[in-house]
Design a protein around this nucleic acid. Structure first.
Ligand code: MN
Ligand code: MN
Ligand code: MN
Ligand code: MN
Lengths: 150, 150
DNA sequence: GTAAATTCTTAGCCAAGACTAACTTTTTTG
DNA sequence: CAAAAAAGTTAGTCTTGGCTAAGAATTTAC
């Protein structure tokens, strides 16, 4: 009854579904997962390399201070990606392990792709660390195909 | 004299210069500029398309609410990228225009590259919106070369 | 030219993610 | 094993970037 064609007012969606806006919203949503992704990937690596993941090692590899790690780990635990006890090293849950695996795969593909494209290893590593969080499965498939070219 | 091989203790850098850590730090630094980059690029577009950039249009295209835009514009003004008067539309400074131009260029190259690689336009637009902030000049050059291939 | 609609700002809330300083726990070492 | 060192946590600060609710300014419509 009341509602009608009153220009941009509340119709259906909470916000105008400009396809452009959607892209930005996607990016924002991807950004919210970046940290968790980098952490679990790193934790998996540390466990693989050293048998355990100590906060001090995480801090060093992430390039942040210890309290930053403590807080981040609290969030990861809250999200069910890790388990931990005070003053002890960190373990991945099943869910965390799955995410770590997925992230590692993406990281690897993006890295191999960039190197295949002709980039030096150093720069490739840096760019991959950022790009990996913003490639769709579709893009990833194309990257992989290119990297695996004969 | 005193200092020696005492494991990780304070040597020189404030933090261990793990090359891995550097990559993460780079990504964090890139992330701090993302918002400004997307805004100035968008503002430039709006001015080009409609002759002016109104906050309401910015909000719609960014997919955020009006107060978010107000705050963001305050930051951009503080950083010298835009000028504005209350209740009026937004203008880019020389610096803002330069950044917008640079961002547009990057965006275009990444987009063309993804499409050239075989991605559909829709997905390409989405991925480009995220990736564009994490490609080094070196990578961009490779993307461009690939996109311009005969 | 006033009333209604739209636009914009302000105030205030919240979570994330960084930091330092200071304290506690654990580990190492003489 | 006691002292020192290292690792980890807590408390508290700051900025960013999102939001809602409410009010002010501007624009549009009658
Ligand atoms: Mn990463
Ligand atoms: Mn990674
Ligand atoms: Mn973008
Ligand atoms: Mn862009």
């Amino acid at each position: 009854m009341t509602c009608d064609s009153s220009s941009t007012a509340a119709t259906d969606e909470p916000r105008p579904a400009d396809s452009r806006a959607e892209a930005f919203q996607e990016v924002r949503s991807a950004r919210r997962n970046e940290l968790a992704e980098d952490y679990v990937e790193l934790i998996a690596e540390l466990i693989h390399e050293h048998g355990e993941a100590r906060p001090v090692a995480i801090a060093a590899r992430m390039g942040v201070r210890a309290p930053t790690v403590t807080k981040a780990l609290d969030r990861l635990a809250r999200e069910g990606l890790i388990t931990r006890e005070r003053y002890r090293s960190v373990f991945l849950t099943e869910k965390g392990r799955a995410l770590a695996h997925e992230c590692r795969r993406r990281h690897e593909i993006v890295l191999r792709f960039l190197i295949r494209l002709g980039l030096d290893a150093e720069t490739a590593e840096r760019d991959a660390e950022g790009i990996e969080h913003h490639v769709s499965e579709r893009t990833l498939a194309l990257f992989e195909a290119y990297a695996d070219q004969v």
